[in-house]
Simulated assay, not measured.
Amino acid sequence: RDGQPRIELPLCVGGENKILGIVPVICPDPQGSFKAGTPVRVSCSITHEKLLNVIVITGETKQTAKIFNPLANTEVFTQHRELLEARQALNESILKNGRPEVDDLKKLAQALENAKCWREAAETMVTIVEQFKYSRKNFATNITYFYAKDGDSKNSDKWAEEAYKSSHGSISAYNLALSRKRNGNNKSYEKLMEESIELDPSNYSTMLAYGYYLMDKNDENDDNDTRGREYIVRACDILSAALLEEEL
Rank of each mutant, 00 (worst) to 15 (best):
D2W: 10
G3P: 02
G3Y: 09
G3C: 12
P5I: 12
P5A: 07
V13R: 14
V13P: 04
G15Q: 08
E16F: 05
E16G: 05
K18S: 13
I19V: 15
L20T: 14
L20Y: 06
G21M: 08
I22H: 03
V23C: 05
V25K: 05
C27Y: 15
C27I: 04
P28H: 10
P30I: 07
Q31L: 12
V42R: 06
S43D: 13
S43E: 14
I46N: 05
T47Y: 10
H48Q: 13
E49N: 13
K50L: 10
L52K: 11
T58N: 04
K62W: 02
K62I: 11
T64Q: 14
K66P: 08
K66N: 12
F68N: 13
N69I: 02
N69W: 11
A72Y: 07
T74N: 12
E75I: 13
T78F: 07
T78M: 08
Q79T: 06
E82A: 14
E82N: 12
L83T: 07
E85L: 12
A86D: 12
R87I: 05
E92R: 11
E92I: 11
S93W: 07
L95Y: 11
K96A: 13
N97T: 08
V102K: 14
L105G: 12
K106W: 07
K107L: 11
A109I: 01
Q110G: 04
A111Y: 07
E113S: 09
N114V: 00
C117I: 04
W118F: 09
W118S: 04
E120Q: 15
E120R: 13
A122C: 10
M125L: 15
M125N: 14
V126D: 05
T127F: 13
T127W: 11
V129L: 06
K137N: 11
K137V: 01
F139A: 04
T141Y: 07
N142Y: 10
I143G: 01
Y145I: 03
Y145F: 15
Y147N: 02
K149Y: 06
G151F: 03
D152Q: 10
D152L: 08
S156T: 10
S156K: 06
S156Y: 03
D157Q: 07
D157I: 04
W159A: 03
A160L: 03
E161H: 02
S167D: 15
S167Q: 10
H168G: 04
H168D: 12
H168R: 14
H168V: 02
G169D: 10
G169W: 01
S170M: 02
I171P: 01
I171Y: 02
S172C: 06
S172N: 03
N175M: 05
N175T: 02
A177H: 00
L178D: 01
L178G: 04
R180T: 08
N185G: 00
Y189G: 00
K191P: 00
L192V: 04
E194I: 01
E195D: 12
E195G: 00
S196V: 08
S196M: 02
L199S: 06
S205M: 06
S205P: 03
T206N: 08
L208C: 03
A209E: 00
Y210A: 03
Y212A: 00
L214P: 01
M215A: 00
K217M: 13
N218Q: 15
D219F: 09
D222H: 04
D222P: 03
D223N: 13
D225N: 11
T226I: 15
R229D: 02
E230W: 01
Y231K: 06
I232N: 03
V233H: 01
V233F: 03
S240V: 11
L244C: 08
E245K: 15
L248V: 15
L248R: 08
